[in-house]
């Protein structure tokens, strides 16, 4: 088991490097760079642009060099000085720009994942054990609706609903008081987590971002459980005198969890991607909208870093799911040993 984990961690580093290369290559692919779009904006406003100043800016940011030189410089700075470059649009170092939204993004993502599994798995089990019951039909219907309705539509409906029922409009994760505190630096993000009103506000984004994933988990859990419940070992366990409850939880659940666990990193990336539009609609201060802005403005270091961080988190998710899988299923654990 220890060997297995070590092997996984070692493969993790080259993957990260290759990923960064691909990300950077794709980010710089569109013609032009931040300066060209910046200059175009200035010219449209009728301002005069000093060509020599432009050239010196280009040189300062290394924009006149080929992309792979830019990449090596960027990577070198990250590895040696943990410097992720400069954000043209926010006019600040990339890392401090991201740091203002990253912790909360991770919190929201993790809580959404938790919501996904805590709701999806039990309902999936219930639906399978009580197949074709009224409860099963209701959950199946809800599951399909949840999967089919787009996130942003859900967001708009829920925001409208809260306004009608409570009379207060839902704007963003934070109350204005907290927002000011965060911007002025008198308040840290972890202090926000201790506030009751924050978790109340969190409910809507989590439901919006998490619903489709939860319904997916529900569906796959139900299908897998039904599969396992029909297997011969269930009959054999029954013939031994094992109770139904034990059959479901000791035998079937463990086997049925496999696809759900291996889908863990998929769920994570789904949350990252799915949250962008919802976050824009609901005005959430998360990474998603920032990435969107960065891509629009060709702010390449910011966009590249955000993608890199997300990729890093997804790789960690994969690692976690691999370890969990090996723990769950002895056949996976031993497959390496037999080859040796």
């Amino acid at each position: 088991m220890g060997n297995y984990i070590l092997k996984r961690v070692l493969t993790f580093l080259p993957i990260l490097l290759i990923m960064s290369l691909v990300i950077f290559f794709i980010i710089q692919l569109p013609p032009g760079d931040y300066l060209t779009s910046y200059v175009a904006g200035l010219k449209a406003e009728g301002q005069i642009v000093d060509e020599s100043e432009l050239a010196s800016l280009k040189e300062r940011y290394g924009l006149d060099q080929p992309w792979f030189m830019q990449y090596f410089k960027w990577m070198g700075n990250i590895l040696t000085r943990f410097d992720f470059g400069y954000s043209f649009k926010y006019e600040a170092p990339v890392w401090s720009t991201i740091a203002s939204v990253l912790p909360m993004t991770i919190v929201v993502s993790l809580v959404t994942m938790l919501f996904n599994y805590l709701v999806g798995i039990p309902i999936g089990i219930y639906s399978a054990v009580h197949q074709y019951s009224i409860g099963d039909y209701c959950f199946t219907l809800l599951g399909f609706i949840g999967m089919a309705v787009p996130n942003f539509l859900f967001a708009i409906l829920l925001m409208y609903g809260t306004y009608i029922w409570t009379g207060t409009a839902f704007i963003g994760l934070y109350t204005s008081e907290v927002l000011v505190g965060l911007q002025q630096g008198t308040m840290q993000w972890w202090e926000v987590l201790g506030r009751g009103d924050f978790w109340g506000r969190m409910a809507i984004p989590i439901i919006v971002i998490g619903t489709s994933g939860t319904c997916g988990t529900l569906r796959s859990m139900r299908a897998q459980m039904l599969d396992e419940l029909g297997r011969n070992y269930v009959l054999c366990a029954r013939a031994k005198g094992v109770s139904e409850k034990r059959i479901v939880y000791k035998y079937c659940l463990r086997a049925a969890l496999n696809p759900t666990v291996s889908g863990l990193s998929g769920v994570l990336s789904h949350i990252f991607n799915g949250s962008t539009i919802s976050a824009i609609v609901m005005n959430l201060q998360l990474v998603g909208p920032m990435l969107y802005e960065a891509l629009k403005a060709q702010d390449m270091y910011l966009a590249g870093t955000i993608l890199l961080v997300m990729g890093f988190l997804i790789i960690i998710g994969t690692l976690l799911s691999d370890i969990l899988l090996a723990w769950l299923d002895p056949r996976i654990r031993f497959s390496g040993r037999r080859a040796e």
């Binding site: 011969n232 070992y233 054999c236 031994k240 005198g241 035998y251 769950l328 002895p330």
Partner: peptide
């Protein structure tokens, strides 16, 4: 058929050998 009495008989007083041993055991446990 799901009650305690029959479960006390199954495996204890009447037991069964199934036809395909390869699938009669759960792969998850020793």
């Amino acid at each position: 058929p799901r009650g305690k009495e029959i479960r006390a008989i199954r495996g204890k007083q009447i037991s069964m050998i199934f036809q395909e041993p390869m699938v009669a055991f759960s792969p998850m446990y020793t």
